[in-house]
Design a protein around this nucleic acid. Structure first.
Lengths: 211, 211, 211, 211
DNA sequence: TATGAATGAGCCTTCATTCAT
DNA sequence: GATGAATGAAGGCTCATTCAT
């Protein structure tokens, strides 16, 4: 089930983190195919022999890294409060997305590359998918707000969840990916810098669709 | 200025198209780094020598292909009508995006991979950017609708344009990319199949933000 | 017998010279193996097709070029006067060598590369060798000077000829080859610049061996 | 500073020598450009992968080889005695040159190719130059002989050193290079075979210039 | 005769993976 | 368990040469 070998569990957490940090940065910057596992080992200061005693293959190293990132992301989601006014929940969500992307930009860019056809075969080997979590999360949040009367009764909840996620996703990507940052700037110019404020304004406009 | 050599202009259009078709499919499916120009040549039934007499490098072949796709996309955009009720314009836009993505799925997936950090350096060599076009297009469309009184006077036009584009982009990607199709299905289940109908519903929910 | 095809005789002398000039410069600068006949054609402004209608192969082009250079060199030698005081003949010879090397530096460097083992197989295809000429020339010159009583009676004529040619050869190479120029400068510093004066001084010191 | 990687230091001396032997022979025989590092690896019985774990590039392999040869040559020079009658020192020098060239003919031919314009860029990357050593060596030898009254007081020492080196160089090359051997035979016929005797006669004729 | 597109062997180099120490 | 030398398939690219137009 895990993508690493037992040996990897036995080394110090520092060393594990170090290897992951280097790996994420390489994979995120160069893409899966153009990244060399030998270079990751060299940069991480361990031998390739060790690398292969921790992971069965380049593919597994990659998946282990991505998986670790998903865990982190999950934890962020799970830390969000599930109550209070809908708008505040939405804002918190957007801010969490921004925070995560700014805190782990390489990891965030790795997700971006996972969306690519090139990595579809690899993505299929992952059991955890961010989507499952968020769909449930959104839909519950929306349902409760409708029940509370904060949002209109005839709201198309699945579609609303999708719409929200679209914007969360692209806001989040704009915090790490060169392309999405550039794209946002084209639309919003200077306003793209203050992500906090932008999240707030996005809340406003999204709320209008739902209320 | 063009990414191909003169020689490429001199071969038959059929052959040119054939090479492009193969190349788009390979690049889109495997990503830039994992794609071999030698294999593209083999699959296209021409010698590598010829390939290199058409393009100076793998990089140029890639850019030539992407550039051609941008042209196509531009033409689609320019074919849209610039008048009539806003909702109808928006719907036409969404449908055009869907149509393009379904007609040229490989090309569409190539754009997806261009968003990756890995390809940022290559993206910079491209002069045409889809973004420039769409920003202007959206903003004009919105401004006119506000003037006509179809949309509310205090609309934050740049943000609205960004919001719309977010949804157009992800709808479009859901038509070709395995990941985005999968993501949409998670949110919308069976409704993800009928993109026409979905576009209509997206129109509705987006309109609420703007009106 | 000639290294070019008949077709080459039929084009204008200007064109022939142009092709040769480009070829000499490329071969001399990059060496035989690293020089591309296609690039010579391109730089000379003719098609490769034409190139191959003038010469059967890269090898033949090379040999044709070298052969032409030998002819030039022969003519220089044959223009030297065969009488007068020995010292003056020797000086004239040294000056002629310098003149030729400065006038045709690329050609001169081509000879240098012909001395290489790499080109021994090609050198063997050449009928004209500079050596044959010079051996006879030197020996006659020396014999006559001995007979005239200008040089000592017990002079080892073949060895003297060899000694002279050694110095002529290296002086000549110092006029075109980066390496030999550099080598001379190491020995003679600033004096390496004025080749005329140097030739005169070399005459002096060589004459002492012979008189 | 060295042209090889650390890995190369760690393999057995036999293997190192074997690789060098093959490499020298290939480079000397075919020239730098026409030599394939893959073929060197094959002939040496190692994989290309290994070759590239020893040297960063073909260029570095070449320079490593040449550098090793320079070291050898230096050692030969440094082994010569710095005292005794000048003529004997000169003879010893000529004999050393002959010995070296006959012992390491490929290496000697490599020097020959280093004199070529083609390899000037590579030569520049070498720190050790045979010239520096020999200039000093010659000049000291000559100066001392002048002081001892063995050579004439008005001797042009730099020019004398250059003259000597010219003859040493070409004698040395005649021991390994097909061309220079051929050239010498043209001048000296059968006498070219007994290099020992020839060195002695060269000493005689050179001494006349200096005494 | 002149052209230049086409060919494909072969070059330099990289990299995932194995395995002896 | 850790190391890193060894392997060789495969990739991007060049170039001498041929041949249809």
């Amino acid at each position: 089930m895990p993508f690493h070998k037992d040996t990897f569990d036995r080394i110090s957490e520092d060393k594990r983190d170090h290897i992951f940090t280097i790996a994420v940065s390489e994979f995120a910057g160069k893409g899966y195919a153009a990244t060399s596992i030998n270079q990751i080992a060299r940069k991480a200061g361990i031998s390739i022999g060790s690398m292969y005693s921790y992971f069965d293959s380049k593919e597994d190293l990659f998946l282990a890294v991505v998986d670790k990132g998903y865990e982190l992301l999950e934890r962020v989601f799970q830390g969000l409060r599930q109550e209070g006014p809908f708008r505040e929940q939405l804002l918190e969500l957007l801010n969490a997305a921004v925070w995560y992307a700014q805190r782990h930009p390489d990891m965030n860019n790795l997700y971006l590359s996972m969306m690519t056809e090139e990595l579809a075969p690899l993505a299929m080997r992952l059991s955890t998918q961010a989507e499952k979590l968020s769909v449930d999360y959104y839909q519950r949040m929306l349902r409760q707000a409708v029940e509370r009367g904060e949002l209109r009764q005839d709201l198309d909840i699945p579609l609303a969840a999708y719409l929200i996620d679209n914007n969360v996703l692209l806001l989040q990507l704009a915090c790490s990916s060169g392309y999405h940052q550039y794209r946002m700037q084209h639309f919003l110019a200077g306003r793209a810098e203050d992500k906090q404020k932008l999240a707030d304004q996005l809340c406003d406009i999204i709320m209008r669709s739902l209320a």
